[in-house]
Design a protein around this nucleic acid. Structure first.
Length: 593
RNA sequence: GCGUCUGUAGCUCAGUGGAUAGAGCAGUGGCCUCCGGAGCCGCGUGCGGAGGUUCGAUUCCUCUCAGACGCACCA
């Protein structure tokens, strides 16, 4: 269905044109003065200068024209000009009810699919294998999942790639640490020629402990660091024993990562990693040299990326270290080559920590300069901020360590569980299951309701609270609607509801209806701006609008059965819109809570 | 030093080239013959600072202050 703002703007454009003004002034927006009107057009004030007239005269002229055409197209119940030149509008109630009935009937609640199957790659910027997921990985997973769900819903072909960090120096570090710990393993016996064992030489628990230990050691011990670099280089050049270790690391880590992402209800189409770019790198380096982009500088191979529009010179992009090894940028460029070959996406979205911004500027520019990606293909880096503790510093456990994601989730679930037990009578088992659903909503909504680019304060108590602008409050509203519907069904003997949504009789009823009518506009906009927090804002407003309506209208006690059926249809639509939106944010509602 | 991002209410956060800048929390007062009160309705304080562009700036530009982050061989 066409968006309501577009319908109104089209009407306004006709009036502006009929009065001899440019249609570009006719844009209609949501009112910022709900006491005066529902929609407004501010174009008359902008037009005043161009046409050398008083803004109010232009507004009045357009208003008169609109009122004249109201007979043919009764979109508005109020059209008026206000000083200094606003055009204020209220929507015709019958038209609004008709619009909502249209939404109810249509698939996806009347949302059109601007995506038309175009492919978009979402890159989650690499959880490292061999490291437990920690809170730093939460944001990319949660934001990415939401962006992906929104895109799919809007008709894009979204391909999410977890894009693991599985090929860098950390692999060499692990290998050398393993050598120090278990020097007798056959992988370190250079004379060994047999097959390597199927069984991994470590458990996930050991692995998670090995990496931080190795990382620490490399900072203190230059010799160890060199060994790790050598091992990395050997691995990248196909040295068999190390490749065998690498496969063990991958197998053990992947199983664990999948478990954790599943728990977040986060899923990937591709489980690729930096290692998959390896095959493209020799060609890449040669090609960049051939094109005259890459040159040697201080022993490394670099590409200048500074453009004329830059006020300052940017550091060049290093694509090969002086020791010959590839690195971050090389692998991201190699990955781009692969993606172009396999998927030729129309757009790229990278979701990583905002500290990596410079890196992505470099990679994007090299990719375009070298012609790997068309100039017009959008490459977006969504750099998200740090998740801080209540002290405003990066989130840590109580004893100052890095918080593991699974512990964080467990903490939230526990907080929610206790809250649920306070009130409702539910079995332990039910409460536990419900707590997981509500806990996930608390966690994701708490994150997504903030602008991605900003740092935010993670406050477990606040996020898991059932009051205020929280995930649980949204779920509560949905559950409440479900409960009313259930009672209505019982009272009516389970018959299908007849009738349809009627013109609003009261203020809060109309506000709810107006809020619902914004749905497709909000959703398209939230995706276009890759801004899930706008969807959060919307469902919070919608939940509030519903609760206001609920207060003023006793639905189940309504004697007028036609009116009652209309309300039932209205709250079904409200429930559906809320449900769709939270699903696009990455969580769902329970039956009761 | 250079660059990027961020400064909005006591706290946590929205927001917009337009009319009176909004929520939540905390504080405080009210609403149940109660469809889920986990709700609803009141009560008050703010756009870091200074210029500029504009009919109009919290929004755009410049400068400035404060914080976070980044600045070639980590990812």
């Amino acid at each position: 269905m066409e968006k309501i703002l577009d319908l109104i703007t089209a009407e306004m454009s006709k009036a502006f044109a009929a009065c001899g003004y440019d249609e570009s002034y006719a844009r209609v927006v949501l009112s910022n003065r709900p006491d005066l009107c529902e929609y407004q057009c501010n174009g008359a004030m902008a037009a005043a200068k161009a046409y050398k007239k008083r803004p109010f005269d232009i507004a009045s002229e357009v208003v008169t024209k609109l009122q004249g055409s109201r007979e043919q197209s009764p979109l508005f119940s109020l059209i008026e000009a206000a000083m200094p030149g606003f055009i204020n509008l209220r929507l015709n109630g019958e038209f609004l009810a008709g619009y909502l009935n249209g939404m109810s009937r249509e698939e996806k609640l009347g949302l059109e699919e601007p995506g038309r199957g175009e492919t978009i790659i979402v890159d989650y910027g690499g959880a490292n294998v061999a490291k437990p997921l920690h809170v730093g990985h939460l944001r990319s997973a949660v934001i990415g999942e939401s962006v992906k769900r929104m895109g799919s819903f809007l008709g894009y072909h979204m391909i999410g790639d977890v894009h693991l960090g599985d090929w860098g120096l950390q692999m060499g570090l692990i290998i050398e640490e393993l050598r120090d710990r278990k020097p007798d393993l056959v992988y370190f016996d250079e004379s060994y020629t047999g097959e390597y064992p199927q069984e991994p030489p470590f458990t996930i628990g050991e692995l998670e402990e090995i990496y931080p230990a190795a990382s620490k050691k490399s900072k203190e011990d230059g010799n160890f660091k060199e060994r790790a670099q050598t091992a990395t280089f050997k691995l990248q050049n196909g040295y068999k024993p190390f490749h065998a270790i690498w496969e063990h690391i991958m197998a053990v880590s992947l199983a664990d990562l999948k478990k954790n992402y599943d728990r977040l209800d986060v899923h990937f189409e591709l489980w690729k990693g930096e290692s998959d770019a390896e095959a493209y790198i020799p060609w890449l380096i040669e090609d960049l040299q051939k094109k005259g982009l890459a040159y040697e500088s201080q022993g490394a191979l670099v590409v200048d990326i500074t453009q004329e529009s830059d006020s300052k010179e940017l550091p060049p992009c290093i694509i090969r270290k002086s020791d010959g090894a590839a690195l971050y940028a090389t692998s991201d460029l190699g990955t781009i080559l692969e993606r172009e070959k396999l998927y030729s996406p129309r757009k790229y979205i990278y979701i990583t920590d905002k500290r990596q911004e410079l890196h992505f500027i470099q990679v994007f520019r090299v990719a375009k300069m070298a012609g790997y990606i068309k100039e017009e293909t959008p490459m977006v880096h969504i750099g998200f901020g740090t998740m801080n503790g209540k002290d405003g510093k990066p989130f840590k456990t109580r004893d100052g360590g890095i918080m593991r994601l699974e512990h964080l989730i467990a903490d939230i679930d526990e907080a929610v569980y206790n809250r649920i037990r306070e009130n409702r009578t539910m079995t332990d088992e039910e409460a536990e299951k419900t707590a997981k659903i509500v806990g996930l909503a608390a966690l994701k909504y708490g994150d997504l309701s903030n602008q991605a680019a900003k740092d935010y304060i993670f406050d477990l108590e606040r996020f898991s609270s059932f009051e205020g602008n929280t995930g649980p409050y949204i779920l509560y509203t949905i559950v409440r609607i479900k409960s009313i519907l259930k009672k209505y069904q019982e009272a009516s003997g389970g018959q299908a509801v007849s009738g349809e949504i009627l013109e609003a009789a009261g203020d809060t009823e109309k506000m709810l209806m107006l809020e619902l009518a914004n749905y497709n506009e909000v959703l398209e906009n939230a995706f276009a701006e890759t801004a899930p927090h706008k969807l959060c804002q919307y469902i919070y407003d919608l939940a509030n609008a519903f609760n206001g309506f609920y207060r003023d209208n006793k639905i189940l006690a309504q004697q007028d059965k036609t009116r009652q059926a209309g309300w039932i249809h209205l709250i079904i639509l409200a429930k559906d819109v809320l449900s769709v939106c939270i699903h696009l944010l990455g969580f769902d509602a329970p039956e009761q809570m």
